[in-house]
């Protein structure tokens, strides 16, 4: 393993210290329990938004803390859900009197830890709404299983809800917008390489030079199927088809198209994917009115990409366009 770390044990805290050093104007970090909040937290008179999850997905979630997006984020160990005490303390630190929205990616650990934290916050008399994001079409949905993973739509939900909260909407309204983003957003991902969890020291799975894993999540886990490497256009088709047919998106729909890098894929390649994805969307009669291209929800240094599509309406578009000022996303300010 070759990594720019001092020790696996101190990795998360040292990264938090670095973030604070770099972006102290936007965020502040709290240690033991670990969480990141807006520099001006608690922002009074608006709904507070809290998310969190394992580390290794940067800039998600800490990089999205700031005006117009998240009020707080809890980083766990690499690929491991944070713990309820972190979420509880973070929730109290950001609560500005209008309740706290928890945005949770659908992983068993995250869901259970956030459930416990929600109970603790409610016991303090804080109003809490929880929304679980499960947008990954690679996993078959079923009430008998853990269901679909939460992936790319999480980034869009955090941005759009952040805009809604800043506009003064109520907790219930912001939560409903979050549910709408989850209902109208779908994703699928592919890996060209595995990734190495620092405390493990070797790649999570072995992938021969000419093979890819189709239908991956964001935890370096193998996907649904392994196949031979194909040209980018072909891979883009294999990602776009299950997304488009899932809801399904219909001709005439206005969409946001998000091409995400998994951490080890250059922007140069992401644009090749975007080019084809946009062409496929157009061929289906979809109107791509907004987009995002870059590495925003990653799986350490994994090479690969995921595509997320979100059907937009006036409300979602308005809050997507709203000003945002965070370490990783910034516009309109």
């Amino acid at each position: 393993m070759k990594k720019l770390i001092n020790s696996p044990e101190n990795l998360v805290v040292e990264a938090m210290e670095g973030m604070e050093a770099a972006h102290g104007d936007l965020i502040k970090a709290h240690y033991n329990p670990n969480f990141i909040v807006r520099a001006d937290a608690p922002a009074k008179g608006k709904v507070a938004i809290l998310s969190g999850g394992g580390s290794g997905h940067e800039p998600l979630h800490g990089g999205f803390v700031g005006a117009g997006m998240l009020d707080g984020a809890c980083p766990g160990a690499v690929f491991t859900s944070p713990t309820p005490d972190q979420m509880y303390e973070a929730g109290k630190a950001i609560h500005g009197g209008k309740g706290v929205l928890l945005i949770i990616k659908n992983y068993t650990g995250d869901v259970m830890n956030f459930e416990l934290a929600a109970d603790l916050l409610k016991a303090d008399g804080i109003e809490v709404e929880s929304v679980v994001i499960d947008d990954d079409v690679a996993v078959k949905d079923s009430t008998w299983t853990a269901g679909r993973r939460g992936v790319g739509a999480t980034v869009l939900a955090e941005k759009i809800c952040g805009g809604a909260a800043a506009a003064g909407l109520s907790l219930k309204e912001v939560a409903d917008i979050c549910r709408k983003v989850n209902a109208e957003g779908r994703s699928m991902g592919v890996a060209l390489t595995s990734c190495t969890v620092p405390h493990v020291g070797k790649p999570t799975f072995d992938l021969p030079e000419d093979e890819i894993e189709m239908g991956i999540g964001i935890h370096g886990e193998p996907g649904r199927t392994r196949m031979k490497l194909q040209p980018a256009d072909k891979i883009t088709e294999m990602l776009m088809d299950p997304i488009i047919t899932d809801i399904p998106y219909k001709s005439g729909d206005e969409v946001l198209l998000f091409v995400n890098g998994m951490g080890g894929t250059p922007l140069l390649e992401l644009y090749v994917i975007y080019r084809k994805a946009a062409a496929i969307a157009k061929a289906h009669g979809l109107k791509v009115s907004r987009n995002l291209v870059g590495s925003y929800i990653t799986s350490l240094e994994m090479a690969g990409t995921s595509i997320t599509m979100l059907k937009l309406d006036d409300t979602l578009r308005k809050f997507w366009d709203a000003p945002v000022k965070t370490p990783a996303l910034r516009w309109g300010v």
Binding site: G54, T80, S81, T83, P84, G109, N113, E115
Partner: peptide, 12 residues
């Protein structure tokens, strides 16, 4: 355990 394990196994 709740405050140090994380993951699914922490709450369990």
């Amino acid at each position: 355990l709740l405050s140090t394990v994380g993951g699914a196994s922490g709450p369990l």
